[in-house]
Write a protein that binds this DNA or RNA. Structure first.
Length: 424
RNA sequence: GUGGGUGUAGCUCAGUUGGUUAGAGUCCCAGAUUGUGAUUCUGGUUGUCGUCGGUUCGAGUCCGAUUACCCACCCCA
């Protein structure tokens, strides 16, 4: 038969790519743990209703779904938040709140692949459940800033744009717009479409020219002062106060340099209730690195009690593209502490000595069949070994070994303990 | 779902106005070198020229269709 190809929008992870993937996951995980988030996981597929309940039926065309043998309608998870909400609802009041959780789920979306966007990918998710406090947002946003810096990015390499659904809602009410569900999708595309289309599409949702004009100007606001001058209602002021506090706290946390007010950020779906944010590389040459917001009514929508929550997702694809472009990815080459070789192909001795080094915690490899020494050296070099240890060198001291440091070509002999010190 | 670009060796690519047996580099394998790798030299393997059809004495090359990938649009949790 002909070998079937790699499915559309998926990736193979040969060892070289897997090392890069692990590098990213390690930094993600360490950063999340450093901020006190606990890791959780869920199944890779869920009942379809978990997603339609939150986002409506349209979502079905954009995910992988199937009927299982028990005629259950199943979907491969396209995002993690509904699973998280399910976990929260199931445990009910027994979870001590607030709590901070993270996960690195493998996600699936049925859509056409393009740069920065695949059908199967990974996404770091950080969420804080059980508090309406704006300091939860502050915690998440500083975690983002710190972890991006862990990757070697500078604060001026990325920007975290912050907006607020609460503020936008209040302002819409202020200018007399009540039917907001149709308005949001248009607002979300505001910067992508022509000005006249923006006006005509909003007119189609029932907005007057004057309302649209005000809204357009409002969303152009670049500073808190600018917004302050445009709003008047108590609701708007309360929403803006929240943003003020958030910015102040982020300054104190050290993440302030990357944060900007950007009211053009709306985000597609309807369940966000407060702060929304998106992270971009400077220059916005790529898709969003991360995005998220507050979803205080999600659990309620999915059949549980009302539990406030806020969180974000950061995909591996765009991030890896960005790090690659900036030269911040590590070498994808294998590395080993020691390679154990033998002049006489004494395989048993090789296994014995390799075992001794491994017991000390070092990574060790050796030939798997009798091979002449030149080949063994080639293998050691190809596998990134730092030191080759010869098990049967004639110049070795009693109980010790001859060795060669590959980077310098230095030959020597010493005891196991002395050789162990060479690795670094 | 819509539009554009590209398909030649495992990888990166060359291939003349259509002409005979399709090339280079790299990778891989072996040897030079039986107690020493990465640098050097020598030799070797690798192809349904994406697929199907058309034009032609003759197609990797021209035409049509199709398919895959890439890029953009739609959408973006």
């Amino acid at each position: 038969m002909q070998t079937p190809p790699l499915p559309k929008g998926t990736r193979d992870f040969y060892p070289e790519s897997m090392r890069i993937q692990n590098f990213i996951f390690d930094i993600w995980r360490k950063a999340a743990l450093r901020f006190g988030y606990e890791e959780y996981e869920g199944p890779m597929f869920e009942h379809l209703e978990l997603y339609t309940g939150k986002s409506g039926e349209e979502i079905v065309s954009q995910l992988y779904d199937f009927k299982d043998k028990g005629d259950r309608h199943i979907a491969l998870r396209p995002e993690m938040t509904p699973t998280l909400a399910r976990l929260v609802i199931q445990k009910g009041n027994s979870l001590k709140k607030p709590f901070k959780w993270f996960s690195i789920p493998r996600l699936f979306r049925y859509e056409r692949a393009q740069k920065g966007r695949l059908r199967e990918f990974f996404q770091l998710n950080l969420d804080i459940i059980g508090t309406e406090s704006i300091y939860a947002e502050a915690d998440l946003l500083s975690a983002i800033a710190y972890m991006l810096m862990d990757f070697g990015l500078k604060t001026e390499d990325f920007s975290i744009g912050v907006s607020s659904r609460k503020l936008l809602n209040a302002y819409l009410a202020e200018i007399g717009v009540s039917e907001v569900s149709k308005v949001y999708p248009v607002l979300d595309r505001r910067l992508k479409i022509e000005k006249e289309d923006f006006y005509s599409e909003l007119a189609a949702t029932g907005l007057s020219l004057e309302q649209t004009k005000k809204l357009d100007q409002f969303m152009d606001s670049k500073s808190i002062e600018e917004v302050e001058a445009k709003i008047s209602s108590d609701e708007s002021k309360a929403a803006l106060d929240e943003i003020k506090q958030l910015f102040k706290t982020l300054q104190a946390s050290g993440a302030g340099k990357s944060i900007t007010l950007d009211l053009s950020i709306v985000r597609g779906l309807a369940y966000y209730t407060g702060i929304v944010f998106e992270v971009f590389d400077k220059g916005k040459s790529m898709r969003a690195i991360a995005g998220g917001g507050r979803y205080d009514s999600l659990c309620e929508k999915l059949g549980g009690d009302k539990v406030p929550g806020v969180g974000f997702g950061m995909g591996d694809v765009v991030l890896a593209n960005l790090l690659e472009e900036r030269g911040l990815l590590p070498s994808s080459k294998q590395s080993l502490d020691f390679f154990v070789a033998s002049f006489t192909n004494d395989m048993d001795k090789i296994f014995e000595v390799a075992g001794k080094f491994r017991k000390l915690g070092y990574s060790v490899n050796h030939p798997l069949s009798p091979t002449k020494l030149g080949k063994q050296m080639e293998q050691a070099n190809a596998q990134g070994a730092k030191v080759v240890v010869y098990v049967d060198g004639e110049k070795a001291p009693a109980g010790g070994f001859e060795y060669k440091v590959l980077s310098t070509g230095t030959l020597g002999a010493g005891t196991l303990e002395e050789i162990a010190q060479l690795k670094v």
